[in-house]
Design a protein around this nucleic acid. Structure first.
Length: 569
RNA sequence: GCGCCCGUAGCUCAGUGGAUAGAGCGCCAGGUUGCGGACCUGGAGGUCGUGGGUUCGAGUCCCGCCGGGCGCGCCA
Protein backbone atom coordinates (compact mmCIF):
# COMPACT_ATOMS: atom_id res chain seq x y z
CA UNK A 1 0.00 0.00 0.00
CA UNK A 2 1.44 3.37 -1.01
CA UNK A 3 0.88 5.98 1.65
CA UNK A 4 -1.64 8.64 0.64
CA UNK A 5 0.34 11.87 0.43
CA UNK A 6 -2.75 14.03 0.85
CA UNK A 7 -3.75 12.43 4.15
CA UNK A 8 -2.39 13.50 7.52
CA UNK A 9 1.11 12.28 8.31
CA UNK A 10 -0.35 10.19 11.07
CA UNK A 11 -2.57 8.40 8.56
CA UNK A 12 0.39 7.95 6.23
CA UNK A 13 2.39 6.41 9.06
CA UNK A 14 -0.52 4.18 10.01
CA UNK A 15 -0.72 2.91 6.45
CA UNK A 16 3.00 2.23 6.42
CA UNK A 17 2.90 0.28 9.70
CA UNK A 18 -0.20 -1.59 8.58
CA UNK A 19 1.59 -2.57 5.42
CA UNK A 20 4.70 -3.66 7.35
CA UNK A 21 2.56 -5.79 9.63
CA UNK A 22 1.03 -7.39 6.55
CA UNK A 23 4.47 -8.22 5.19
CA UNK A 24 5.62 -9.46 8.58
CA UNK A 25 2.91 -12.13 8.55
CA UNK A 26 5.38 -14.47 6.85
CA UNK A 27 7.56 -14.41 9.97
CA UNK A 28 4.59 -14.47 12.29
CA UNK A 29 2.26 -17.32 11.42
CA UNK A 30 -1.09 -16.45 12.91
CA UNK A 31 -2.74 -19.11 15.07
CA UNK A 32 -6.15 -18.07 13.72
CA UNK A 33 -7.30 -17.11 10.24
CA UNK A 34 -7.53 -13.38 10.59
CA UNK A 35 -6.44 -11.03 13.31
CA UNK A 36 -8.18 -7.69 13.19
CA UNK A 37 -6.61 -5.18 15.53
CA UNK A 38 -6.60 -1.51 14.57
CA UNK A 39 -3.13 -0.02 14.26
CA UNK A 40 -2.86 2.77 16.80
CA UNK A 41 -0.48 5.62 16.08
CA UNK A 42 0.05 8.05 18.91
CA UNK A 43 2.27 10.95 19.79
CA UNK A 44 4.71 9.79 22.46
CA UNK A 45 4.71 11.83 25.64
CA UNK A 46 8.48 12.12 25.40
CA UNK A 47 9.30 13.58 21.99
CA UNK A 48 12.92 12.48 22.16
CA UNK A 49 11.67 8.96 21.50
CA UNK A 50 10.43 9.89 18.05
CA UNK A 51 7.59 11.55 16.17
CA UNK A 52 5.08 8.76 16.55
CA UNK A 53 4.74 5.58 18.54
CA UNK A 54 2.61 2.49 18.14
CA UNK A 55 1.59 -0.12 20.68
CA UNK A 56 0.34 -2.47 18.00
CA UNK A 57 2.89 -5.14 18.95
CA UNK A 58 1.65 -5.10 22.56
CA UNK A 59 -1.90 -5.56 21.34
CA UNK A 60 -0.96 -8.37 18.98
CA UNK A 61 0.91 -10.32 21.65
CA UNK A 62 -2.14 -12.15 22.89
CA UNK A 63 -3.72 -13.17 19.55
CA UNK A 64 -0.37 -14.23 18.15
CA UNK A 65 0.67 -15.85 21.43
CA UNK A 66 4.13 -14.40 21.04
CA UNK A 67 6.31 -11.99 22.96
CA UNK A 68 5.44 -8.40 22.04
CA UNK A 69 9.10 -7.57 21.59
CA UNK A 70 9.44 -10.24 18.94
CA UNK A 71 6.42 -8.95 17.04
CA UNK A 72 7.71 -5.39 17.26
CA UNK A 73 11.05 -6.45 15.84
CA UNK A 74 9.40 -8.27 12.95
CA UNK A 75 7.32 -5.23 12.02
CA UNK A 76 10.28 -2.88 12.43
CA UNK A 77 12.36 -5.05 10.13
CA UNK A 78 9.79 -4.76 7.38
CA UNK A 79 9.46 -0.99 7.79
CA UNK A 80 13.23 -0.76 7.44
CA UNK A 81 13.10 -2.36 4.00
CA UNK A 82 10.87 0.46 2.71
CA UNK A 83 12.50 3.33 4.62
CA UNK A 84 14.82 4.06 1.71
CA UNK A 85 11.83 4.60 -0.59
CA UNK A 86 11.53 8.38 -1.09
CA UNK A 87 7.73 8.06 -0.83
CA UNK A 88 7.96 6.56 2.66
CA UNK A 89 7.13 8.97 5.46
CA UNK A 90 9.25 6.97 7.89
CA UNK A 91 12.98 7.45 8.29
CA UNK A 92 13.56 5.01 11.13
CA UNK A 93 11.79 2.72 13.55
CA UNK A 94 13.15 1.69 16.91
CA UNK A 95 11.84 -1.01 19.19
CA UNK A 96 11.66 -0.30 22.91
CA UNK A 97 10.63 -2.72 25.63
CA UNK A 98 8.12 -4.09 26.31
CA UNK A 99 7.22 -3.73 22.62
CA UNK A 100 6.77 -0.10 21.65
CA UNK A 101 7.54 0.99 18.11
CA UNK A 102 9.10 4.43 18.05
CA UNK A 103 8.88 6.07 14.65
CA UNK A 104 10.92 8.92 13.26
CA UNK A 105 9.66 10.93 10.27
CA UNK A 106 11.74 11.49 7.15
CA UNK A 107 12.86 15.06 6.46
CA UNK A 108 11.75 14.63 2.86
CA UNK A 109 8.20 13.87 3.96
CA UNK A 110 8.19 16.84 6.32
CA UNK A 111 9.47 19.14 3.57
CA UNK A 112 6.91 17.81 1.10
CA UNK A 113 4.11 18.52 3.56
CA UNK A 114 5.35 22.04 4.21
CA UNK A 115 5.53 22.67 0.46
CA UNK A 116 2.00 21.38 0.13
CA UNK A 117 0.82 24.17 2.43
CA UNK A 118 2.20 26.83 0.10
CA UNK A 119 0.73 25.12 -2.96
CA UNK A 120 -2.83 25.20 -1.69
CA UNK A 121 -3.15 27.26 1.49
CA UNK A 122 -6.95 27.19 1.57
CA UNK A 123 -7.03 23.39 1.51
CA UNK A 124 -4.48 22.96 4.30
CA UNK A 125 -6.23 21.49 7.31
CA UNK A 126 -9.03 20.02 5.23
CA UNK A 127 -9.03 16.25 5.09
CA UNK A 128 -11.05 13.78 3.09
CA UNK A 129 -13.61 11.90 5.16
CA UNK A 130 -13.46 8.14 5.01
CA UNK A 131 -17.26 8.11 4.81
CA UNK A 132 -18.48 11.59 3.81
CA UNK A 133 -21.85 12.46 5.30
CA UNK A 134 -24.56 15.04 4.81
CA UNK A 135 -25.23 16.32 8.31
CA UNK A 136 -27.78 18.70 9.76
CA UNK A 137 -26.76 20.41 13.00
CA UNK A 138 -29.44 22.23 14.94
CA UNK A 139 -28.35 24.53 17.72
CA UNK A 140 -29.26 27.52 19.88
CA UNK A 141 -32.99 27.30 18.95
CA UNK A 142 -33.90 29.69 21.75
CA UNK A 143 -37.49 30.86 21.63
CA UNK A 144 -37.88 34.38 20.25
CA UNK A 145 -39.33 35.91 23.36
CA UNK A 146 -36.22 37.88 24.28
CA UNK A 147 -32.66 38.56 23.18
CA UNK A 148 -30.05 35.83 23.57
CA UNK A 149 -28.49 35.87 27.00
CA UNK A 150 -25.13 34.64 28.13
CA UNK A 151 -26.62 31.23 28.88
CA UNK A 152 -27.12 30.72 25.15
CA UNK A 153 -23.46 31.38 24.39
CA UNK A 154 -22.22 27.88 24.93
CA UNK A 155 -24.71 26.25 22.60
CA UNK A 156 -24.02 28.84 19.93
CA UNK A 157 -20.26 28.36 20.02
CA UNK A 158 -20.37 24.61 20.46
CA UNK A 159 -22.64 24.18 17.47
CA UNK A 160 -20.76 26.58 15.26
CA UNK A 161 -17.40 24.99 16.14
CA UNK A 162 -18.72 21.50 15.48
CA UNK A 163 -19.95 22.57 12.05
CA UNK A 164 -16.60 24.11 11.18
CA UNK A 165 -14.74 20.97 12.24
CA UNK A 166 -17.06 18.56 10.45
CA UNK A 167 -16.78 20.64 7.29
CA UNK A 168 -12.98 20.60 7.48
CA UNK A 169 -13.14 16.84 8.00
CA UNK A 170 -14.84 16.41 4.63
CA UNK A 171 -18.54 16.40 5.50
CA UNK A 172 -21.36 18.47 4.08
CA UNK A 173 -23.01 20.38 6.90
CA UNK A 174 -26.12 22.49 7.27
CA UNK A 175 -26.79 24.69 10.28
CA UNK A 176 -30.31 25.02 11.51
CA UNK A 177 -32.22 27.13 14.04
CA UNK A 178 -35.64 26.01 15.23
CA UNK A 179 -37.93 28.41 16.98
CA UNK A 180 -41.31 28.29 18.56
CA UNK A 181 -43.70 30.90 17.19
CA UNK A 182 -46.68 28.89 18.30
CA UNK A 183 -46.84 28.66 22.04
CA UNK A 184 -48.49 30.75 24.72
CA UNK A 185 -45.17 32.50 25.37
CA UNK A 186 -45.60 34.42 22.14
CA UNK A 187 -49.06 35.48 23.12
CA UNK A 188 -47.76 36.49 26.52
CA UNK A 189 -45.04 38.58 24.90
CA UNK A 190 -47.65 40.32 22.76
CA UNK A 191 -49.87 40.98 25.75
CA UNK A 192 -46.91 42.53 27.57
CA UNK A 193 -46.10 44.84 24.66
CA UNK A 194 -49.74 45.92 24.33
CA UNK A 195 -50.08 46.54 28.07
CA UNK A 196 -47.01 48.76 28.18
CA UNK A 197 -48.03 50.62 25.06
CA UNK A 198 -51.42 51.38 26.53
CA UNK A 199 -50.14 52.15 30.00
CA UNK A 200 -51.97 49.21 31.55
CA UNK A 201 -50.59 46.93 34.21
CA UNK A 202 -48.46 44.06 32.92
CA UNK A 203 -50.00 40.59 32.98
CA UNK A 204 -48.92 38.58 35.99
CA UNK A 205 -46.59 36.39 33.92
CA UNK A 206 -45.65 39.22 31.59
CA UNK A 207 -42.21 40.04 30.27
CA UNK A 208 -40.38 42.92 31.97
CA UNK A 209 -37.12 43.41 30.10
CA UNK A 210 -36.04 46.73 28.61
CA UNK A 211 -36.45 45.27 25.15
CA UNK A 212 -40.17 44.84 25.82
CA UNK A 213 -40.47 48.55 26.57
CA UNK A 214 -38.48 49.36 23.42
CA UNK A 215 -40.85 47.29 21.33
CA UNK A 216 -43.91 48.88 22.94
CA UNK A 217 -42.55 52.23 21.85
CA UNK A 218 -41.64 51.10 18.35
CA UNK A 219 -44.81 49.16 17.66
CA UNK A 220 -46.28 50.73 14.47
CA UNK A 221 -49.77 52.12 14.92
CA UNK A 222 -51.10 50.19 11.91
CA UNK A 223 -50.08 46.86 13.47
CA UNK A 224 -51.88 47.80 16.65
CA UNK A 225 -54.97 48.94 14.70
CA UNK A 226 -54.94 45.71 12.74
CA UNK A 227 -54.69 43.73 15.97
CA UNK A 228 -57.69 45.52 17.38
CA UNK A 229 -60.02 44.48 14.57
CA UNK A 230 -62.90 42.20 15.54
CA UNK A 231 -62.00 38.54 15.36
CA UNK A 232 -58.35 39.22 16.12
CA UNK A 233 -56.71 38.60 19.44
CA UNK A 234 -54.48 41.64 20.00
CA UNK A 235 -52.06 39.65 22.15
CA UNK A 236 -51.55 37.11 19.36
CA UNK A 237 -51.32 39.61 16.56
CA UNK A 238 -48.83 41.82 18.38
CA UNK A 239 -47.05 38.73 19.69
CA UNK A 240 -46.36 37.56 16.13
CA UNK A 241 -44.95 40.96 15.24
CA UNK A 242 -42.86 41.14 18.42
CA UNK A 243 -41.46 37.63 18.18
CA UNK A 244 -40.37 38.17 14.59
CA UNK A 245 -38.66 41.35 15.68
CA UNK A 246 -36.90 39.49 18.48
CA UNK A 247 -35.98 36.67 16.11
CA UNK A 248 -34.30 38.98 13.64
CA UNK A 249 -32.43 40.57 16.55
CA UNK A 250 -31.23 37.12 17.58
CA UNK A 251 -30.04 36.48 14.04
CA UNK A 252 -28.07 39.73 14.12
CA UNK A 253 -26.48 38.83 17.47
CA UNK A 254 -25.46 35.43 16.16
CA UNK A 255 -24.01 36.98 13.01
CA UNK A 256 -21.95 39.20 15.24
CA UNK A 257 -20.62 36.05 16.95
CA UNK A 258 -19.71 34.56 13.60
CA UNK A 259 -22.53 32.01 13.81
CA UNK A 260 -24.51 31.89 10.58
CA UNK A 261 -27.46 29.61 10.00
CA UNK A 262 -28.56 28.04 6.71
CA UNK A 263 -32.11 27.25 7.78
CA UNK A 264 -34.52 29.04 10.12
CA UNK A 265 -37.46 26.78 10.78
CA UNK A 266 -40.56 27.70 12.76
CA UNK A 267 -42.78 25.34 14.68
CA UNK A 268 -45.93 26.67 13.06
CA UNK A 269 -44.73 25.66 9.58
CA UNK A 270 -44.34 22.08 10.80
CA UNK A 271 -47.97 22.05 11.86
CA UNK A 272 -49.29 23.97 8.85
CA UNK A 273 -47.48 21.75 6.35
CA UNK A 274 -48.88 18.61 7.95
CA UNK A 275 -45.59 17.12 9.15
CA UNK A 276 -46.86 16.60 12.68
CA UNK A 277 -50.09 14.89 11.65
CA UNK A 278 -48.32 12.62 9.19
CA UNK A 279 -45.66 11.68 11.76
CA UNK A 280 -48.33 10.69 14.25
CA UNK A 281 -49.96 8.54 11.56
CA UNK A 282 -46.64 6.83 10.88
CA UNK A 283 -46.23 5.97 14.56
CA UNK A 284 -49.77 4.64 14.54
CA UNK A 285 -49.10 2.57 11.43
CA UNK A 286 -46.03 1.15 13.13
CA UNK A 287 -48.31 -0.02 15.94
CA UNK A 288 -46.52 2.12 18.50
CA UNK A 289 -49.37 4.28 19.81
CA UNK A 290 -52.29 3.64 22.13
CA UNK A 291 -54.98 5.68 23.85
CA UNK A 292 -55.10 6.31 27.55
CA UNK A 293 -57.46 8.59 29.47
CA UNK A 294 -58.47 10.22 26.21
CA UNK A 295 -54.90 11.03 25.17
CA UNK A 296 -52.86 9.45 22.38
CA UNK A 297 -49.63 7.99 23.73
CA UNK A 298 -46.44 6.90 21.94
CA UNK A 299 -45.00 3.64 23.25
CA UNK A 300 -41.46 4.97 23.56
CA UNK A 301 -40.57 2.36 26.19
CA UNK A 302 -40.44 -0.15 23.36
CA UNK A 303 -37.26 1.67 22.23
CA UNK A 304 -35.67 2.17 25.62
CA UNK A 305 -37.33 5.27 27.07
CA UNK A 306 -38.28 5.08 30.78
CA UNK A 307 -41.92 5.90 30.19
CA UNK A 308 -44.38 6.30 27.34
CA UNK A 309 -45.09 9.83 26.12
CA UNK A 310 -48.29 11.64 25.28
CA UNK A 311 -48.34 13.06 21.77
CA UNK A 312 -51.97 14.19 21.41
CA UNK A 313 -53.61 15.76 24.45
CA UNK A 314 -56.81 14.54 26.04
CA UNK A 315 -58.31 18.01 25.64
CA UNK A 316 -61.17 18.34 23.17
CA UNK A 317 -59.02 19.59 20.29
CA UNK A 318 -56.50 16.75 20.76
CA UNK A 319 -53.76 19.32 20.32
CA UNK A 320 -50.31 17.86 19.64
CA UNK A 321 -47.74 18.20 22.40
CA UNK A 322 -44.40 19.88 21.88
CA UNK A 323 -42.88 16.42 21.61
CA UNK A 324 -45.28 15.56 18.76
CA UNK A 325 -43.99 18.61 16.88
CA UNK A 326 -40.45 17.38 17.39
CA UNK A 327 -41.38 14.02 15.91
CA UNK A 328 -42.81 15.77 12.88
CA UNK A 329 -39.62 17.75 12.70
CA UNK A 330 -37.46 14.60 12.61
CA UNK A 331 -39.45 13.34 9.63
CA UNK A 332 -39.25 16.72 7.91
CA UNK A 333 -35.49 16.90 8.41
CA UNK A 334 -34.83 13.43 7.04
CA UNK A 335 -37.06 14.24 4.06
CA UNK A 336 -34.38 16.75 3.10
CA UNK A 337 -31.88 13.95 2.60
CA UNK A 338 -29.57 14.16 5.60
CA UNK A 339 -27.75 11.03 6.60
CA UNK A 340 -27.49 12.24 10.17
CA UNK A 341 -29.18 14.90 12.25
CA UNK A 342 -27.47 16.40 15.28
CA UNK A 343 -28.98 18.38 18.12
CA UNK A 344 -26.93 20.57 20.44
CA UNK A 345 -28.81 20.77 23.69
CA UNK A 346 -28.10 22.00 27.19
CA UNK A 347 -27.66 19.09 29.53
CA UNK A 348 -30.91 20.02 31.25
CA UNK A 349 -32.56 18.42 28.19
CA UNK A 350 -30.89 15.05 28.64
CA UNK A 351 -34.13 13.48 29.76
CA UNK A 352 -35.41 14.27 26.28
CA UNK A 353 -32.79 12.29 24.39
CA UNK A 354 -34.31 8.85 24.78
CA UNK A 355 -37.78 9.83 23.59
CA UNK A 356 -36.65 11.58 20.42
CA UNK A 357 -34.35 8.69 19.53
CA UNK A 358 -37.21 6.29 20.27
CA UNK A 359 -39.50 8.20 17.93
CA UNK A 360 -36.87 8.17 15.19
CA UNK A 361 -36.51 4.42 15.49
CA UNK A 362 -40.24 3.84 15.36
CA UNK A 363 -40.29 5.99 12.22
CA UNK A 364 -37.70 3.68 10.69
CA UNK A 365 -34.53 5.74 11.09
CA UNK A 366 -31.62 3.86 12.62
CA UNK A 367 -30.67 5.12 16.07
CA UNK A 368 -27.22 6.32 15.13
CA UNK A 369 -28.64 8.74 12.56
CA UNK A 370 -29.98 10.91 15.37
CA UNK A 371 -27.39 12.33 17.70
CA UNK A 372 -27.60 14.67 20.66
CA UNK A 373 -24.62 16.57 21.99
CA UNK A 374 -25.24 17.89 25.46
CA UNK A 375 -23.41 20.93 26.73
CA UNK A 376 -22.80 21.11 30.45
CA UNK A 377 -24.19 23.97 32.42
CA UNK A 378 -22.36 27.27 32.65
CA UNK A 379 -22.76 29.04 35.97
CA UNK A 380 -22.35 32.73 35.41
CA UNK A 381 -20.88 34.36 38.44
CA UNK A 382 -20.19 37.95 39.33
CA UNK A 383 -18.36 38.77 42.56
CA UNK A 384 -18.81 35.24 43.80
CA UNK A 385 -22.57 35.24 43.35
CA UNK A 386 -24.47 33.40 40.66
CA UNK A 387 -26.11 35.74 38.15
CA UNK A 388 -29.82 34.95 38.02
CA UNK A 389 -31.29 34.65 34.58
CA UNK A 390 -34.90 34.87 33.63
CA UNK A 391 -36.23 36.27 30.39
CA UNK A 392 -39.59 36.82 31.94
CA UNK A 393 -38.37 39.15 34.67
CA UNK A 394 -35.77 40.69 32.40
CA UNK A 395 -33.01 39.80 34.86
CA UNK A 396 -30.27 38.68 32.55
CA UNK A 397 -27.06 39.71 30.86
CA UNK A 398 -27.43 39.60 27.11
CA UNK A 399 -24.92 37.97 24.83
CA UNK A 400 -24.28 41.32 23.18
CA UNK A 401 -23.41 42.87 26.54
CA UNK A 402 -21.03 40.05 27.41
CA UNK A 403 -19.22 40.33 24.08
CA UNK A 404 -18.98 44.06 24.48
CA UNK A 405 -17.04 43.37 27.66
CA UNK A 406 -14.71 40.55 26.65
CA UNK A 407 -14.71 40.40 22.85
CA UNK A 408 -15.73 37.72 20.37
CA UNK A 409 -12.26 36.22 19.87
CA UNK A 410 -11.65 35.82 23.61
CA UNK A 411 -15.12 34.38 24.18
CA UNK A 412 -14.76 31.93 21.31
CA UNK A 413 -11.42 30.77 22.62
CA UNK A 414 -12.84 30.35 26.12
CA UNK A 415 -15.59 28.00 24.97
CA UNK A 416 -13.56 26.22 22.29
CA UNK A 417 -10.91 25.25 24.80
CA UNK A 418 -13.27 23.31 27.05
CA UNK A 419 -14.99 19.99 26.46
CA UNK A 420 -18.74 20.32 25.95
CA UNK A 421 -19.37 17.95 28.85
CA UNK A 422 -17.31 19.94 31.31
CA UNK A 423 -19.18 22.23 33.66
CA UNK A 424 -17.87 25.76 33.75
CA UNK A 425 -17.95 28.54 36.29
CA UNK A 426 -17.76 31.71 34.24
CA UNK A 427 -16.80 34.64 36.42
CA UNK A 428 -17.51 37.71 34.32
CA UNK A 429 -15.22 40.02 36.26
CA UNK A 430 -12.45 37.45 36.11
CA UNK A 431 -13.01 36.96 32.38
CA UNK A 432 -12.68 40.69 31.81
CA UNK A 433 -9.55 40.87 33.89
CA UNK A 434 -8.05 37.79 32.24
CA UNK A 435 -8.99 38.72 28.74
CA UNK A 436 -5.59 40.38 28.30
CA UNK A 437 -3.89 37.16 29.33
CA UNK A 438 -6.14 34.99 27.22
CA UNK A 439 -3.98 32.57 25.22
CA UNK A 440 -5.82 33.65 22.10
CA UNK A 441 -3.70 36.81 22.07
CA UNK A 442 -0.55 34.76 22.38
CA UNK A 443 -1.50 32.89 19.22
CA UNK A 444 -2.59 36.01 17.39
CA UNK A 445 0.65 37.69 18.38
CA UNK A 446 2.65 34.91 16.73
CA UNK A 447 0.61 35.44 13.58
CA UNK A 448 1.14 39.21 13.60
CA UNK A 449 4.85 38.73 14.21
CA UNK A 450 5.08 36.50 11.16
CA UNK A 451 3.18 38.99 9.05
CA UNK A 452 5.68 41.61 10.13
CA UNK A 453 8.66 39.44 9.17
CA UNK A 454 7.23 38.74 5.74
CA UNK A 455 6.61 42.45 5.19
CA UNK A 456 10.14 43.24 6.26
CA UNK A 457 11.58 40.59 3.95
CA UNK A 458 9.64 42.00 1.02
CA UNK A 459 10.97 45.48 1.81
CA UNK A 460 14.51 44.08 1.93
CA UNK A 461 13.93 42.56 -1.48
CA UNK A 462 14.29 38.95 -0.28
CA UNK A 463 11.71 36.83 -2.03
CA UNK A 464 9.73 34.14 -0.26
CA UNK A 465 9.88 31.09 -2.55
CA UNK A 466 6.73 30.54 -4.56
CA UNK A 467 4.82 27.29 -4.32
CA UNK A 468 5.80 26.30 -7.86
CA UNK A 469 9.50 26.99 -7.28
CA UNK A 470 11.21 23.72 -8.26
CA UNK A 471 13.85 24.28 -5.59
CA UNK A 472 11.29 24.55 -2.79
CA UNK A 473 11.31 21.01 -1.40
CA UNK A 474 15.09 20.85 -1.72
CA UNK A 475 15.54 24.13 0.11
CA UNK A 476 13.26 23.02 2.91
CA UNK A 477 14.88 19.61 3.22
CA UNK A 478 18.21 21.37 3.45
CA UNK A 479 17.32 23.31 6.60
CA UNK A 480 15.34 20.59 8.41
CA UNK A 481 18.29 18.99 10.19
CA UNK A 482 18.60 22.33 12.00
CA UNK A 483 17.10 22.20 15.47
CA UNK A 484 14.86 25.31 15.32
CA UNK A 485 13.45 24.32 11.94
CA UNK A 486 12.96 20.68 12.90
CA UNK A 487 10.83 21.62 15.89
CA UNK A 488 8.72 24.10 13.97
CA UNK A 489 8.03 21.99 10.91
CA UNK A 490 6.91 19.10 13.12
CA UNK A 491 4.27 21.34 14.66
CA UNK A 492 3.12 22.75 11.33
CA UNK A 493 2.44 19.41 9.71
CA UNK A 494 0.20 18.27 12.58
CA UNK A 495 -2.80 20.36 11.52
CA UNK A 496 -4.60 17.70 9.41
CA UNK A 497 -4.17 15.19 12.21
CA UNK A 498 -5.57 17.67 14.72
CA UNK A 499 -8.61 18.15 12.47
CA UNK A 500 -9.10 14.39 12.20
CA UNK A 501 -9.00 14.05 15.97
CA UNK A 502 -11.36 16.97 16.54
CA UNK A 503 -13.86 15.51 14.08
CA UNK A 504 -13.61 12.03 15.55
CA UNK A 505 -14.11 13.24 19.13
CA UNK A 506 -16.47 16.07 18.16
CA UNK A 507 -14.53 18.33 20.49
CA UNK A 508 -12.46 21.40 19.72
CA UNK A 509 -10.15 21.87 22.69
CA UNK A 510 -7.48 19.94 20.82
CA UNK A 511 -7.40 22.77 18.30
CA UNK A 512 -6.80 25.49 20.86
CA UNK A 513 -4.10 23.39 22.50
CA UNK A 514 -2.50 22.83 19.11
CA UNK A 515 -2.65 26.50 18.16
CA UNK A 516 -0.90 27.38 21.41
CA UNK A 517 1.81 24.77 20.85
CA UNK A 518 2.35 25.94 17.29
CA UNK A 519 2.70 29.54 18.47
CA UNK A 520 5.20 28.41 21.12
CA UNK A 521 7.19 26.50 18.52
CA UNK A 522 7.25 29.57 16.31
CA UNK A 523 8.38 31.90 19.10
CA UNK A 524 11.21 29.49 19.95
CA UNK A 525 12.18 29.29 16.28
CA UNK A 526 12.15 33.07 16.09
CA UNK A 527 14.52 33.26 19.02
CA UNK A 528 17.01 30.77 17.56
CA UNK A 529 16.84 31.26 13.80
CA UNK A 530 17.40 34.53 12.03
CA UNK A 531 15.03 34.59 9.06
CA UNK A 532 16.12 37.64 7.08
CA UNK A 533 19.80 37.30 6.29
CA UNK A 534 20.97 38.80 3.05
CA UNK A 535 24.35 37.06 3.30
CA UNK A 536 22.66 33.63 3.34
CA UNK A 537 20.12 33.81 0.49
CA UNK A 538 19.31 30.08 0.30
CA UNK A 539 18.86 29.59 4.00
CA UNK A 540 16.90 32.80 4.25
CA UNK A 541 14.61 31.73 1.41
CA UNK A 542 14.04 28.34 2.99
CA UNK A 543 13.26 29.87 6.36
CA UNK A 544 10.88 32.35 4.75
CA UNK A 545 9.04 29.45 3.14
CA UNK A 546 8.78 27.78 6.51
CA UNK A 547 7.53 30.99 8.11
CA UNK A 548 4.95 31.44 5.36
CA UNK A 549 3.75 27.88 5.94
CA UNK A 550 3.49 28.63 9.66
CA UNK A 551 1.42 31.70 8.89
CA UNK A 552 -1.06 29.72 6.83
CA UNK A 553 -1.25 27.02 9.47
CA UNK A 554 -1.95 29.50 12.27
CA UNK A 555 -4.56 31.28 10.16
CA UNK A 556 -6.32 28.02 9.30
CA UNK A 557 -6.27 26.77 12.88
CA UNK A 558 -7.77 30.07 14.04
CA UNK A 559 -10.22 29.91 11.15
CA UNK A 560 -11.45 26.54 12.40
CA UNK A 561 -12.29 28.31 15.64
CA UNK A 562 -13.87 31.31 13.93
CA UNK A 563 -11.18 33.56 15.39
CA UNK A 564 -9.52 36.37 13.46
CA UNK A 565 -5.86 36.36 12.44
CA UNK A 566 -4.61 39.97 12.60
CA UNK A 567 -1.76 41.19 10.37
CA UNK A 568 -0.78 43.53 13.19
CA UNK A 569 -1.97 44.18 16.71
C1' G B 1 -35.99 7.44 45.29
C1' C B 2 -34.55 6.53 39.91
C1' G B 3 -31.60 8.24 35.58
C1' C B 4 -27.65 11.20 33.15
C1' C B 5 -23.13 14.41 33.62
C1' C B 6 -18.94 15.94 36.54
C1' G B 7 -14.76 15.40 40.57
C1' U B 8 -6.96 15.74 37.94
C1' A B 9 -1.59 21.43 40.39
C1' G B 10 -3.51 27.58 44.25
C1' C B 11 -7.27 28.92 39.89
C1' U B 12 -9.39 27.55 34.86
C1' C B 13 -9.03 23.15 32.26
C1' A B 14 -6.56 18.93 28.86
C1' G B 15 -5.32 13.75 29.11
C1' U B 16 -8.62 8.28 22.02
C1' G B 17 -6.24 1.17 28.19
C1' G B 18 0.32 2.32 27.36
C1' A B 19 6.46 4.75 28.71
C1' U B 20 8.36 9.88 34.10
C1' A B 21 0.04 12.62 34.56
C1' G B 22 0.26 17.91 31.05
C1' A B 23 -1.12 23.26 29.40
C1' G B 24 -2.60 28.32 30.42
C1' C B 25 -3.05 31.80 34.35
C1' G B 26 -0.90 32.95 39.13
C1' C B 27 3.88 32.47 42.09
C1' C B 28 9.61 32.37 42.30
C1' A B 29 14.47 33.12 39.63
C1' G B 30 16.81 34.62 35.10
C1' G B 31 17.15 36.61 29.67
C1' U B 32 17.34 42.50 24.55
C1' U B 33 24.87 45.28 21.39
C1' G B 34 19.84 42.05 15.12
C1' C B 35 13.61 40.33 11.85
C1' G B 36 7.41 43.04 17.03
C1' G B 37 9.54 41.91 25.00
C1' A B 38 1.69 41.00 23.98
C1' C B 39 8.27 37.29 23.66
C1' C B 40 11.98 33.54 25.63
C1' U B 41 14.59 30.03 29.51
C1' G B 42 14.36 27.53 34.17
C1' G B 43 11.86 26.31 39.02
C1' A B 44 8.32 25.21 42.91
C1' G B 45 3.40 23.08 43.08
C1' G B 46 -0.37 16.28 42.45
C1' U B 47 -2.74 10.39 48.03
C1' C B 48 -5.81 11.97 39.65
C1' G B 49 -12.74 12.49 45.41
C1' U B 50 -12.64 7.44 47.96
C1' G B 51 -12.60 1.84 48.54
C1' G B 52 -12.54 -2.60 45.77
C1' G B 53 -12.22 -5.30 40.93
C1' U B 54 -10.62 -6.48 35.55
C1' U B 55 -5.68 -6.20 32.88
C1' C B 56 1.09 -7.57 31.27
C1' G B 57 -0.35 -2.25 32.19
C1' A B 58 -5.93 2.00 34.99
C1' G B 59 -6.50 9.24 35.62
C1' U B 60 -8.94 6.24 31.56
C1' C B 61 -12.92 0.17 31.87
C1' C B 62 -16.54 -2.36 35.88
C1' C B 63 -18.96 -2.17 40.98
C1' G B 64 -19.80 0.36 45.81
C1' C B 65 -19.45 4.90 48.58
C1' C B 66 -18.70 10.50 49.25
C1' G B 67 -19.35 15.42 47.12
C1' G B 68 -21.46 18.83 43.19
C1' G B 69 -24.80 19.81 38.86
C1' C B 70 -29.11 18.49 35.93
C1' G B 71 -33.50 15.81 34.76
C1' C B 72 -37.71 12.74 36.10
C1' G B 73 -45.29 17.22 33.05
C1' C B 74 -50.88 16.01 28.33
C1' C B 75 -45.16 22.97 30.13
C1' A B 76 -42.23 24.70 26.20
Amino acid sequence: MTPDATASLRTQVRQAIQSAWQSAQVDLPAPVDAIDVPVDIERPADTTRGDFASTIALKLAKPYRRAPLQIAQAIAAHVATTATDPASPIAAVEVAPPGFLNIRLADGALAANAARILRDPAAWGHVAAEHPEHINVEFVSANPTGPLHIGNARGAFTGDLLCRVLTAAGHKVEREYYFNDFGSQVKNLGASVVAIREGCELPEDGYHGDYVYDMARELPAEILDEARKPGEDPAWAVGRWASEKVRSGIEASLDHLGCHFDVWRSESTLHNDGWVTRAVERLRAAGDVYEEDGAVVFRSTKYGDDKDRVILRSTGDAAPTYFAADIGYVVEKFSRGYGRIVFIWGEDHHGYVARVKAAAQSLGFEGDRVQMILTAWVRFVRDGKEVPMSKRTGEFITLDELLGEIGVDAARWFFASRAASSGIDFDIELAKKQSNENPVYYVQYAYARIASILRKAAEAGIATPKADDPRLVGLLTGILPGAPEAQLVRQIVRLPEVVEEAAASEETHGITTYATELATAFHAFYRDARVIEEAEPDRSAARLALVAATKTTLANALGLLGISAPESM
